[in-house]
Amino acid sequence: MTTVEKKEVQAKKEWEPQIVAFCCNWCSYAGADLAGTSRIQYPPNARIIRVNCTGRISPEFILASLEMGADGVLVSGCHPGDCHYSSGNLKLRARLTIMKMAIEQAGINPDRIRLQWASASEAQIFADGVTTIVEQVRALGPLRREWK
């Protein structure tokens, strides 16, 4: 094994997906709180950014996160019909649908973005969602490699 190969193996071993998670305050952030209170264990790869509503999430936030090197982005909000602000989540969903097509055209696997609905009582769904995006992204490898 050459030194370069060795280095690569090591890098592979050490690489852990970096996930930016945007959560709405009312459902998913509270769901994540409940996951903690219920001591549900899930991978520590996601960093949650609290926004009032998923409707606040501009496509730019997600694109910029990927550009800055996030391996995946999780967006978690209230179920359709349950939005604290009545419909912000639907607007986010519409934006995300278009954006996923756009990033795919740009050569980024859309599986790096996950949209999920998790209410304040769905701690397990929230935790499972984090696990899913982490595993999805782990299978894809680091984003920076995808660029090259």
Binding site: G36, T37, R39, Q41, Y42, P44, I48
Partner: peptide
């Protein structure tokens, strides 16, 4: 949020 989002859900890590 170091409790609900960190210590309580990554207890073994």
């Amino acid at each position: 949020n170091l409790r609900e989002h960190v210590s309580w859900c990554h207890t073994r890590q």
